[in-house]
């Protein structure tokens, strides 16, 4: 394609091709400290393209394509090209990944052990992972945690942190030195701004961690912590995994193993500071 960029995020290599320069230039800048795919061969190809040749220039509209596609994926305006690229990369993972069980969760690590946080959009996955990273945890990812069926370890997938709406200001305040992508107002998911994970997260992205705690955070409630029964945790995680069904028996074994080995806890929290306190308390009680 006219413009192209390759990057490796954790164990997964991507190749992104584009009909426009702008999204590739943004990716190059934001992912400048990341390595290239192993051997130069990416796991997945992503394409950002104009449906018709004139749509490259006139009201440019970015279609999302690649190895794996959803027929109903709506195009985005060119100023949201970076978002299109990130969505397309996530889509390859969600539909195509087979080496790992994908958990829709953010992950941070301390002392070689991983804390997983999962929940619906708006539960605070990205925000909490960012706040914990500020407190000295190693950031492993805010979208997918990769559970290796062979070892039971969690592999990092520290892509750009996708901050939405009020989370943007919260993260900027918590981490004023972080490099940020362009602010994209009024996208289909609200205002979005991408933040580059810290240098340590990138440097250590090939180091896996043993899962130690699974948290189901919920923002906007009085502080409360309660255990989640294993059966409920299992069912919620089957729904939070994009490739649980596709992995078949391996997916079932990995997930039941995780739930059996790791305590599952629901956390309601009114604000970030409170959530950090609750998480730290749970962690030190492990």
């Amino acid at each position: 394609m006219r413009y192209a960029f390759s990057v490796r995020i954790g164990p997964i290599g991507f190749r992104i091709g584009s009909d426009w320069r702008a999204p590739i230039a943004e990716l190059q800048s934001l992912y400048r400290d990341y390595p290239k795919p192993h051997d130069g061969v990416p796991d997945f190809t992503v394409r950002l393209f104009a449906r018709r040749p004139w749509r490259r220039l006139i009201r440019p509209s970015v279609e999302i394509g690649g190895d794996y596609m959803l027929p109903e994926a709506a195009p985005l305006p060119l100023r949201q090209g970076l978002l299109a690229a990130e969505m397309a990369m996530n889509l390859q993972m969600a539909l195509g990944a087979r080496r790992y069980l994908l958990l829709h969760a953010s992950a941070v690590e301390r002392d070689g052990r991983a804390l997983l946080m999962t929940g619906i959009s708006g539960a605070g996955k990205s925000t909490l992972a960012t706040l914990l990273a500020v407190k000295g945890w190693r950031f492993m990812g805010d979208e997918f945690a990769l559970l290796d069926p062979a070892t039971g370890l969690i592999h990092a997938f520290p892509r750009l942190i996708s901050l939405k709406n009020e989370a943007i200001a919260a993260a900027e305040a918590a981490w004023p030195t972080a490099r940020m992508g362009p602010l994209m107002p009024a996208t289909p998911k609200g205002d979005i701004r991408h933040m580059v994970p810290d240098a340590r997260a990138i440097a250590a992205m090939d180091v896996p961690a043993t899962p130690a705690l699974l948290v189901f955070p919920r923002y906007g409630f009085e502080a409360e912590t309660r255990p989640v029964p294993p059966a409920e945790a299992f069912v919620r995680m089957t729904q939070a995994s994009t490739n649980y069904v596709a992995l078949g028996e391996a997916g079932f074994r990995s997930l039941t193993g995780l739930i059996a080995d790791v305590p599952s806890v629901a956390i309601d929290y009114p604000d970030g500071a409170s959530a950090i306190e609750q998480v730290e308390a749970l962690w030190s009680a492990l």
């Binding site: 192993h38 051997d39 061969v41 796991d43 087979r98 080496r99 992995l247 078949g248």
Partner: peptide, 22 residues
């Protein structure tokens, strides 16, 4: 073949085997 290709093709074989069973 390069290790990266080997890994990608191993995934594809596993996916095909799962597809066959399904």
């Amino acid at each position: 073949m390069p290790d990266s290709v080997k890994a990608i093709l191993a995934d594809a074989r596993a996916a095909a085997e799962h597809g066959r069973r399904a």
